[in-house]
Design a protein around this nucleic acid. Structure first.
Lengths: 200, 200
DNA sequence: CCGATATCGTTCGGTCCCGAACAAACTTGC
DNA sequence: GCAAGTTTGTTCGGGACCGAACGATATCGG
């Protein structure tokens, strides 16, 4: 993680790596002051982007939003995996699936997939992994032999009860920088994106 | 995608699926009006969450932020894959890697990994895939035999020139709902999260 | 000059991830 | 009641993804 070399990319990257988001940051900063280009000392990445995109009709702010969202999601996920999940032998997706089942108590397979945001093909594998760990039980639906009901084993319940507060504590820590109003604004903007992106 | 069944989960899900984000939405809506709990008709998911978490000390707004960010990232990625990338035989990660190389012209492997936000182990595979498609060239660094320089082939250049405007057009469409100020706020909030999550 | 140390990219094992194809089970129309 | 259509979960192929272990290469200290 410590990048100690001296070439342009690494030095410009510093601790905040990622071309897209640094670019996005500069774009937003420039917009904020209503400035045209040239007023800021762009680092190597932003200069490269600007040169490459010169003459093209590009929506820079849209680009900034998409890349920042994606980057933030990765950062949050990786941090939670590193600080909480890995320690308990869980993956991100496994955790989400477990969480959904925990909330519902007993729930059909297809609903878990929808709630967790994965395809049914993926769920088959994840669920198999969790069952092998002894965290999840499978039952055939009494009224429909196609369906499968998932629920937590006692060990699964114990795990959730132990890990969830810890997980949420890290979530809280990661968002302490934001005020209540900022969190609301953030959520609002994100929901607007989701709505657009998910509309058929 | 059309969920036409009549059970509580599906009907509450509607077109916006995903327990976490619906929950997050309700949380944010409640906050917005400064109300305590009980003033709103919660749907099945939120009721389940509320019941499950009753008595636990949970930071709901932090939970809402994390789940919304993750959900939005997935929605944006899936939509861009479906509408733009798949058509050109590209995956999301392949696209990001290609983009980084396109911007830099010629760049060392390790930098591509850092900029694209993947591990070096992952990059080896992605790069191999792109090279097999004839989109990327590999050269050994003249001064250091350990390093590998990546660049686009002519076909890679052609592809980027053709696909990037299309990609950005969809990005623009997905963010049209947001005003300039909203986009800036969004980017600001997300960067705050990234900073926290990435700090060692 | 040469051993200790650091860095770069690859390999490997395990998991995730999707869409397409599929079989089994249910529902609907006639 | 049964053929046609739909839904559910599985399987499969191709790819992404990470961390750990590794070999090759480079650098630093003496």
């Amino acid at each position: 993680m410590t990048r100690t070399h001296r070439d342009p990319i690494a030095s410009s990257a510093g601790s905040s790596s990622g071309a897209l988001s640094r670019y996005a940051a500069a774009t937003a900063a420039a917009e904020q002051q209503g400035s045209a280009s040239g007023d800021f000392t762009l680092d190597a990445t932003e200069q490269a982007v600007a040169e490459r995109l010169q003459g093209m009709e590009i929506d820079m702010s849209a680009m900034a939003v998409v890349s920042n969202v994606y980057r933030a999601a990765n950062a949050l996920r990786n941090h939670l995996e590193r600080t909480v999940l890995t320690k308990h032998g869980l993956t991100w997706t496994g955790w989400v699936v477990l969480w959904v089942i925990w909330i519902w108590g007993e729930i059909e397979s297809r609903h878990v997939a929808a709630e967790a945001g994965v395809s049914k093909g993926t769920l088959t594998g994840v669920q198999k992994t969790l069952a092998a760990k002894g965290l999840v039980d499978r039952t055939v639906h009494p009224d429909d032999a196609r369906r499968v009901l998932l629920s937590l084993t006692e060990e699964g319940e114990r795990l959730m009860a132990a890990v969830f507060p810890e997980f949420n504590g890290v979530e809280a820590w990661m968002t302490t920088e934001l005020s209540g109003a900022e969190k609301r604004e953030l959520a609002r903007g994100l929901r607007a994106l989701v709505q657009r992106a998910e509309e058929a």
